[in-house]
Design a protein around this nucleic acid. Sequence first.
DNA 1: CTAGGGTTAG
Length: 374
Amino acid sequence: MFQSNVPRHSLKFQEALRHTGTKKIHDLCTKHRNVDEALRLLDHLRLRGYLPDPLNLSSIIHGLCDANRFNEAHQRLIIFLTSLCVPDERTCNVLIARFLHSKDPFRTFNVIHRLIEFKPEFVPSLINYNRLIDQFCSVSLPNVAHRMLYDMINRGHCPNTVSYTTLVSGYCKIGELSDAYKLFDEMPEWGVVPNSLTYSLLIRGVLRKRDIERGRELMHVLFQVMRYEEDQSVNSAAFANLVDCLCREGLFNEVFMIAEEMPQGNRVNEDFAFGHLIDSLCKVGRSHGASRVVYIMRKKGFTPSIVSYNSIIHGLCKEGGCMRAYQLLEEGVGFGYLLSEYTYKVLVEALCQAMDLDKARGSFKSYVEQGRDG
DNA sequence: CTAGGGTTAG
């Protein structure tokens, strides 16, 4: 056996190697970003009878994942495991988090099962499961993601709102609304309550299917749910997603209704809400609509940000609204905003072009008239 | 000097 050729050493010798080796390996992997040198050192020590410990495993896998060498990291991990170098629970979760950076959920899933193979009592953390669910959804495989949900339940986890929201959104993205609804209804069975972001992402799927009536009903519930949400950032995310998809689906009446009536009240920071309405409208080429939101905002006593003025002015110049753009420029200057030189350049060019267009029109007209006369 | 270490849904 090969094993018997390896010299056996005392514990003292192991510890001596550990002192010199482990720190060096770790430094090579992190500080110097030279995993290959670390691997050479580790192989050298191994030939002298050194048994790698979970610290070495952690350093090496970290270094390889950090260098986007996920294939090798995966192979090395298996080698470490088969030589019975098995890390503790926390380290296992850290390693999984590293493999999640590969954005290859199948690989991460394999890593998890390899770890469990050598450490049957290991249960990946809720966050790792949720991230894995998200990654299967982002490669349009919510069915596989769904199996991860059952997997985590079987291992004794209780899924949370993030788990379900991710999966509901995953089914919505591929247009499987009936699965999304089923999952949404299943949540209370696990003591999980949908929050405003869950509703918002479900609405996105519903509106994409052009089920406007159902979308409106859910929007009503969404604004109710926002009132009980304690995490402001969840409400902001829900609001931003809602406005984005209303704009994308061309439901501008709803967008202006929100700007006028602010049904989310103070559950979403007002400046953020107005700013996002303006942003989303500009993004879908509706700068005139965005300037209408500026008007509504000011009517309510809020001041648009310099960023809003900049993007609307740019948008209006592109969409043939340079006179309104000029008006807004003056308005912004009136608030003491120092608009960028680029904004001025864009506006001046648009104004010149508009005048040229008039000239062009004029000459075209006279050309036509001349033709009639002649 | 006893070692190192990730955080989710838009």
